[in-house]
Write a protein that binds this DNA or RNA. Structure first.
Length: 934
DNA sequence: GGGCTCACG
DNA sequence: GACGTACGTGAGCCCG
């Protein structure tokens, strides 16, 4: 790529990186020989983080790391004392300088330094050159000496604070725009670099003077006009020294360069080189993280028997480039037959469907794409339409398409053939579409789920993202075909010649991802997870989603009306209390009314300067006897129930089936939990009486009942097992009240006649532990002083020391490996665990929670996967999963038998892979509706 | 489109 | 020493 417009050059101030790394880290040494490597380690971490984050709109197309070559530069000829009072670098840092250059080259990033020049001069020259070529430049440094370069497409980025420094920030710092910064620096001098400047003049005064006189030369010429005698003397007496200072701080865009911009194009690291270097430095956890990121196996540590160099994969063999023009458009049966023959020959095929909607239950099939090997893909248009059609959208089919029935009948034997693997990206979607045409697709591989098994926590698993990340290719955006907003069209309206490259590319990408991921599953040790917890779930969920749940529209509609009336009454009451009308639904207006107009106490502004009006705030106010916040709380509850549930749910009733069909995302939640969308049926109200009534609208058809079974305290049981807490395990085995038991252990009170308040506190702690407890969080939850909460936690840890040990061990494991694991081997990555700042707290707690939440998620997945076989022949269907609950619809007469079978499957779901040292127990209920079944 | 709020486990 | 914090989700509304 020739550097020019659209290119973005990143210039990394290498010396700054080194010093930051050196001071930020303890003095590490290499284990085998004691070589100091702390700064190198930090430097590599920074570079790795940089490489990982270099994506998105601001990503570099070109990059270089620039170093200072030696301490003597041309500036010492101008002024021998320049930087003379700089102490020599620490003894243990010196040997690390050459290693940081090696590290840079190991990352495959150009490394630049020139004898006699400072890094800043080279940065200046490169920045000017890139700017003049029409490109954009970002300097990764916070060095104030570089700020003179800012402007006209050159910006700076403080890599530690991740803060951009643009013209405004420079003006804020120096009081003058970037082009006058050297004038200010020349006057103010710099004690660190020993730039003399004018004595007694600092940055503030210098800025004032430059603002007044325009620039340094004018100021020197008109120095006599300066009113303050001291300033006048300082300038007049030191004019030469000031001019020298300017030459010292001024960066030279004409510094000779021995590289071309085109040489700086961003290159992917070569796995063998980079891992080889990191391994040589004995950076074990970083080696692993980098290996994970590059999708190769980490080389064995040097102490072990060293593998032959050839065993380390070098750069991926040059892949076949994407060529959308090479894709086939299949318009007749003969061509389709040829493709089917190719599929049979190969034994596998990537499949993708194009439809008119993201809602699989309403979407109409428009076309199918297939791919048998990288670059060899086709699109079969089946339902493309042309012409304007009438008001009802019925336009005629575009010509030269194989009749849909014919094409599907030809494809059906292949798609259902047990000996031919069908590969898809989010195959549940396509399987459901094809199921509606009578095709039961099997067996299936799914690249989205492969990525999820390997990379949960690292990034999303959508095709565009995977393609960009792992194939280095940007897919055609669907937007370019469909448009967006009001003018958006459906896929059947896309001209076929435009549809072919888009659709066939998706199949091509899917096949390439599959070829890449398949061998990696083993290396990442997640084959079992993928094969037992991900892949088998696809048909299970597809069945549940297609079954849907019956929802009674009239019940919802009546509730909506009732809510609307109550809301109207509350609204006028609220307006009266407020002394005038306002939008009750606007937190902004409400905050102003409460804390400004009514001047209530206890308001806290959030980081955006808006008053917080969350339920906790309003509850506190209501408890003090204020009516308005109490009414608003009531109003909000009704508003939520109405808009999210009673109104919105009606819109999700499928006109054909009369039922509500949610969609579960398998790879949405990092921990292994499912997520329910469109609509979300995992958050139907239950905690309040009023909300729970919405569940009355979820009904069983005549002659059937709904049966709900849910795991009792599954996460606490898993915690008891994983952390190995004898007292908790004992309590679960004996079927005791776990929270009362905890309270009894902690506070030494008897179980008999326990104060409910004490039990409540113990319960909060039990839950808090699962979430990675903090004194702050517990205090807020229980509304007690933080010190008291901390006291509880301390006592809890004292009584159950295994919990703390588990937490510490989990966090340590995450820091070492970059991921945590469930009992079933599911990996959840924790890329932020070694971060600094508040993010570290989040990552820490998430790491503690993930194995517990994730193991529970694995358990119920196992139960679900075994369910069809267990209930085969019974007049029953599994309808919904709500994390620890399964909901079934069953003939009334078979409800008992079903309950027994399902309970058995759920309670033994961890066997035989994991033997839990606590029993899993399931509570069951049934009724004509979900409220009654719970 | 981001932030706030709130529904669930 | 201050910061800002319970874990995991999805959806509807307001507001710029």
């Amino acid at each position: 790529m020739t550097f020019g417009k659209g290119c973005h050059l990143h210039l990394i101030d290498g010396s700054a990186f080194i010093f930051r790394a050196y001071h930020a880290l303890p003095p590490l040494t290499r284990k085998s020989d004691g070589l100091p490597v702390g700064a190198v380690a930090g430097f590599c971490n920074m570079l790795f983080r940089y490489v990982e984050n270099n994506k998105g709109a601001d990503a570099a197309t070109h990059v270089a790391v620039i170093f200072d070559h030696s301490s003597k530069t041309f500036r010492n000829e101008i002024y021998p004392l320049y930087k003379a009072n700089r102490p020599d670098p620490p003894e243990d840092l010196r040997p690390q300088f050459p290693l940081t250059r090696e590290a840079t080259r190991a990352f495959n990033i150009p490394c630049i330094e020139t004898e006699g020049f400072e890094a800043d001069d080279i940065i200046a020259a490169l920045a000017c050159k890139a700017r003049d070529a029409g490109g954009q430049v970002t300097i990764l440094s916070s060095d104030k000496d570089l700020m003179q370069l800012v402007g006209n497409g050159v910006g700076m980025l403080d890599p530690m604070k991740n803060k951009r420094i643009d013209r405004d920030e420079v003006i804020e710092k120096f009081g003058v725009p970037p082009e006058r910064v050297v004038d200010v620096q020349a006057l103010a001098g710099d004690s660190v670099d020993n730039v003399p400047g004018a004595p007694g003049i600092g940055i503030k005064t210098a800025a004032l003077l430059i603002q007044e006189y325009g620039d340094l030369e004018s100021l020197l010429a008109r120095a006599a006009e300066i009113k303050q005698p001291k300033r006048r003397a300082a300038i007049q007496d030191n004019a030469d020294q000031i001019r020298i200072s300017k030459r010292l701080v001024e960066l030279d865009c004409n510094t000779p360069l021995d590289v071309e911009l085109d040489d700086l194009e961003v290159q992917k690291p070569v796995a063998g080189d980079l891992l080889g270097f990191l391994n040589l430095m004995e950076f074990r956890s970083l080696t692993k993280r980098v290996a994970d990121s590059l999708k190769v196996e980490a080389p064995p540590a040097p102490t072990a028997v060293t593998a032959p160099a050839a065993a380390i994969p070098s750069a991926a063999e040059a892949p076949l480039p994407f060529d959308t023009a090479a894709y086939d458009c299949v318009r007749d049966a003969a061509t389709l037959s040829a493709w089917i023959a190719r599929i049979r020959e190969r034994g596998h095929v990537a499949v993708d469907t194009e439809t008119t909607s993201l809602d699989e239950m309403r979407a109409e099939l428009v076309g199918i794409s297939l791919c048998v090997e990288a670059g060899r893909a086709c699109y079969i248009p089946l339902g493309h339409r042309q012409g304007t059609g009438d008001l009802f959208g019925g336009a005629e089919l575009a010509p030269d398409q194989i009749p849909m029935d014919l094409a599907l009948s030809m494809l059906k034997p292949v798609l259902e053939d047990d000996a031919i693997l069908k590969i898809g990206q989010n195959m549940k979607y396509d399987a459901k579409i094809l199921a509606r045409h009578g095709i039961r697709v099997a067996p299936i591989d799914d690249t989205m789920l492969m990525s999820y098994a390997m990379h949960a926590g690292l990034h999303g698993h959508g095709m565009d993202e995977l393609c960009d990340t792992y194939l280095g290719h940007k897919t055609i955006a669907i937007k370019t075909l469909l448009g967006s907003g009001k003018a958006q069209i459906t896929f059947d309206r896309v001209p076929i010649d435009q549809a072919v490259p888009y659709a066939a590319e998706d199949a091509d990408v899917t096949l390439r991802l599959w070829a890449l991921f398949r061998p990696q599953l083993h290396r990442a040790r997640v084959t079992t997870v993928y094969e037992t917890l991900e892949r088998p779930l696809i048909p299970i969920l597809a069945e549940m989603e297609m079954a849907g749940v019956q929802v009674d529209r009239d019940t919802l509609s009546r509730m909506s009306n009732a809510f609307a009336q109550k809301m109207a009454a509350l609204e006028s009451e609220i307006h009266e209390l407020a002394g005038g009308p306002f939008n009750v639904g606007s937190p902004k207006q409400l905050g102003e009314i409460l804390f400004e107009r009514m001047s209530l106490q206890g308001g806290v502004k959030g980081k955006n300067g808006a008053w917080g009006t969350g339920a906790d705030v309003l509850e506190d106010l209501a408890a003090e006897g204020h009516d308005l916040p109490a009414r608003v709380l009531d109003w909000r509850q009704l508003s939520k129930l109405k808009s999210t549930y009673t109104d919105a749910l009606q819109d999700h009733i499928n006109p054909e089936t009369g039922r509500v069909h949610t969609s579960y995302s398998i790879a949405g939640a990092n921990t292994g939990r499912l997520a329910s969308t469109d609509p979300n049926l995992q958050n139907i109200p239950v905690r309040t009486e009023e909300g729970r009534r919405i569940r009355e609208a979820f009904v069983a058809p005549p002659g059937k009942v709904l049966v709900s079974l849910d795991y009792s305290q599954i996460e606490l049981r898993i915690l008891a097992h994983i952390a190995d807490i004898p007292a908790l395990k004992q309590a679960f085995r004996e079927g005791q009240d776990i929270h009362a038991m905890t309270a009894s252990e902690m506070f030494g009170v008897p179980l008999e006649g326990m104060d409910p308040m004490v039990r409540r506190q113990a319960k909060a702690i039990n839950f808090g532990v699962i979430y990675g407890i903090s004194g702050f969080g517990l205090a807020r939850n229980l509304r007690i002083p933080r010190a008291d909460a901390q006291g509880f936690i301390d006592r809890y840890f004292e009584r159950f020391p295994g919990i703390r040990a588990y937490m510490d061990a989990t966090v340590a494991f995450a820091k070492e490996n970059g991921f945590v694991q469930t009992l079933f081997g599911r990996k959840i990555h924790t890329p932020e665990i070694n971060a600094k700042g508040p993010g570290a707290g989040f990552a820490r707690r998430a790491a503690i929670n993930a194995p517990i939440q994730g193991t529970a998620a694995d358990v119920i997945r196992r139960a679900m996967i075994r369910m069809p076989k267990a209930i085969a022949g019974m007049p029953a269907k599994m309808l919904l999963q709500v994390h620890d609950e399964l909901l079934f619809e069953v003939d009334e007469a078979a409800a008992d038998a079903l309950t027994d079978r399902v309970r058995e499957v759920m309670e033994t779901a961890s066997d035989p892979a994991v033997h839990l040292s606590v029993p899993l127990t399931v509570e069951a209920g049934r009724g004509a509706n979900w409220a009654a079944a719970h």
